[in-house]
Design a protein around this nucleic acid. Structure first.
Lengths: 127, 127
DNA sequence: GTAAGTAGGAACTTTTAAGTAACCAGTTAG
DNA sequence: CTAACTGGTTACTTAAAAGTTCCTACTTAC
């Protein structure tokens, strides 16, 4: 008895490190932008072309957020049409192993998730 | 030359497994709910008390989503006040190592992120 | 002169996520 | 009789995220 009876909350959004990290990477475009830089620097226009459906506003906004968090760096080459290159910092690269694990998990388990959803939806309909 | 010149987009939200997995876990309460179940089944009311600020609506919604994705299971005990227990499935538990890695990363790197933000904001103000 | 490329910024609208409040059935305690 | 507990549902409102459109300034090609 008297085993784990928390009268006051012990889990909070503001303190949970899961939430803090997820806030950094969980917006719609962040992972795609990081993914694009996996094997080297990428220019603004190249992101635009490679990432399907991203608007200039969302691209700029996503890049600024990543720069603010210290995950990427901006190199401005003052050439005739100015060229701006973005690349991962050491901090940004330290997220890659974690993203690769995510990918491995997805490959193995997303089909199971799909199946669970189908089951759940079928059952909901039946009731 | 002719090295990596994608004329058509090769990165898309709909296909990227990062995005698909993040969709599952990136809502505000999901990680907190999973976290609460880390060391055993938890009842509805216990979630309410332990997770600071969660409303019944968001709790129910989060639990239903996790159940639909096959990450948790519901056990209804038809006792006098009905008791409903939630626990992680094998699929749900398979996410735990990944979440622990996230926590490790956070412990090591969140201070660096904080510092980067402070620098960035100071510089933005100065310009 | 005009269209297209460079890398954005600002204003505005739409869509989605989240929060609030009231209510339900059933039982027990006062 | 009323309040409180169990585990929710429903309707409505608010706040945040994302999308759309038009604009900048400079250069080159047509």
């Amino acid at each position: 008895m008297a085993q784990r009876m928390p009268r006051t909350p012990d889990i909070s959004v503001a303190k949970c490190s899961y939430s803090l990290v997820l806030d950094m990477i969980s917006s719609k475009w962040v992972v795609l932008v990081i993914y694009a830089m996996e094997d080297g620097p990428v220019r603004y226009g190249e992101f635009s072309r490679r990432i399907e459906g991203i608007s200039k506003k969302m691209l700029t906004q996503t890049l600024r957020q990543l720069e603010r968090d210290g995950l990427i760096e901006r190199d401005i080459h003052p050439t005739v049409p100015p060229a701006v290159e973005y690349r991962l910092t050491a901090l940004g690269e330290s997220l890659l192993p974690f993203m690769r694990q995510l990918k491995t998990w997805a490959a193995a388990n997303l089909p199971l998730v799909e199946a669970a959803r189908t089951r759940f939806d079928a059952q909901s309909l039946a009731e």
